[in-house]
Design a protein around this nucleic acid. Structure first.
Lengths: 244, 244
DNA sequence: GCCTGCGTTGAGGTCAGACCACAAGTATAC
DNA sequence: GTATACTTGTGGTCTGACCTCAACGCAGGC
């Protein structure tokens, strides 16, 4: 009698789907931005139910590897690497992340990234950075536009660092921080000074002065934190937090 | 008659579930390790189908916030904070992460974490760290046991850093690195020397010498990387790593 | 007494197929 | 010629039946 189960590939269907798609990505069949087959068809191909297929896709979508668009199709993520949008928020709820901790993480990561960018940056990065700085000066009258170029500038530095993992991490933190901020009032920071600082950072990176780039980035972010009212770190002696 | 469409807040069911559970966590109804109601029952409570509920749970499970155990139940994650286990692996497939990049990220993060731990560590952390160091010296004959205490030691430092976000990130990287390594041969590193280094790190942290802790941690990790054969990065001919 | 088997129970996992909702393109009415 | 309505393709949700797994407990054998 044929045993009802046996067969080796008995792993959960979810992982079966994930691994399949993963291998398609690894062997180049699927590129970022590509569309995968419609669910019904793909399910038939993989010889599993549509429900199971969807579970697997949902899994990958949660981690930001796939992007599903209702009524249109399912695609491999493109854009900059990043963990699932909501991941930090959810984990924050679970482990009690504080905003100052996000800032701290960001400062540490981004100043190191700036240093790496100074060591490894290429001409294409310099060009792109210079452009964004220029845009910032030009957008001095429009906070919204300014912010866009601010974000782009930092993203380019991440790319220039040559380490996509670190880039993914700060991308995740930054976006969490960002949509935490947009819930509050539109802070009106001193854009001229901010643009000025970005320019200095750019110059340090371009001059391959990694230590200086690190320092400037740190200053810049500390200032940004302060001007956003997200003051104070931990301040030991004063805090009575009984920990545990 | 079947309820026509627009009933009310038509947000995707998935997010409906996620937000519900999230609020249960935030208001303290659900604690790490707690079990949520059985799917059939919970679905009835939320007035959605079991399928949709499962989608939402799957989403949270993918990000490491929930843990599902077939035949047993679904639980809120406990243990140290960490992004979804597979997240790095999948993103790596998509964005071409290299092993040296993981090491680099780890070194940067963990040396900064060691510095923070030196500034903020508490007695309970010192005690736990000392214990693990002792265990390492005691497990000199058993590589497997040694590794366990090695991991625990590093995890305690993460906690002592007082920044759960950074802790979550290195936890994720470390575990990815770990199960990448266990696929290769069991490297027999010099455990005595390794234990020795851990002890020095511990001392620096305990003495609140943050700069020294940072430096020692960096050395330790560089050595670990080397001894694992995961040699150096983008070694072009222009390797003037004069910086630092 | 203690161990072994096997059935029961409760939980998650999978399936099939019908139907809903959304986005885009296409045809039709004015 | 433009605006509205229809059609099509694709993801989203619902039902309800059935499968698999883990834990527990009772019974039989040593």
């Amino acid at each position: 009698m044929p045993r009802t189960k046996q067969d080796e590939p008995n792993t959960h269907r979810t992982m079966q789907v994930v691994n399949h798609i993963r291998s398609l990505i690894e062997n180049g069949t699927l590129q970022p931005g590509d569309k995968i087959p419609p669910e019904r068809e793909f399910a038939r191909t993989l010889k599993i139910s549509r429900a199971s297929l969807r579970t697997g896709i949902g899994y990958m979508a949660a981690m930001g590897v796939m992007k599903v668009r209702h009524g249109v199709g399912t695609f491999v993520a493109d854009g900059p690497p990043e963990f699932g949008k909501a991941s930090l928020g959810l984990m924050g709820a679970l482990h009690g992340f504080q905003t100052w901790q996000m800032f701290e993480a960001r400062i540490i990561l981004e100043s190191n990234i700036a240093a790496l960018a100074a060591e490894r940056g290429k001409d294409e990065h310099y060009t792109a950075m210079a452009e964004e700085v220029a845009e910032m000066f030009a957008a001095m009258e429009s906070p919204a536009d300014f912010l866009i170029h601010d974000l782009l500038f930092h993203r380019i530095i991440s790319q220039a660092s040559g380490n996509p993992i670190l880039a993914a991490v700060i991308e995740t933190i930054t976006s969490a921080l960002y949509d935490k901020r947009r819930k509050t009032v539109e802070r009106s920071i001193d854009m001229r000074e901010s643009a000025e600082m970005h320019r200095e950072i750019y110059r340090a990176i371009r001059a391959r002065k990694s230590q200086e780039a690190r320092k400037l980035m740190e200053e810049h972010l500390r200032m940004a934190q302060t001007s956003q009212g997200m003051e104070r770190p931990p301040d030991r002696k004063a805090v009575l937090v009984a920990s545990r």
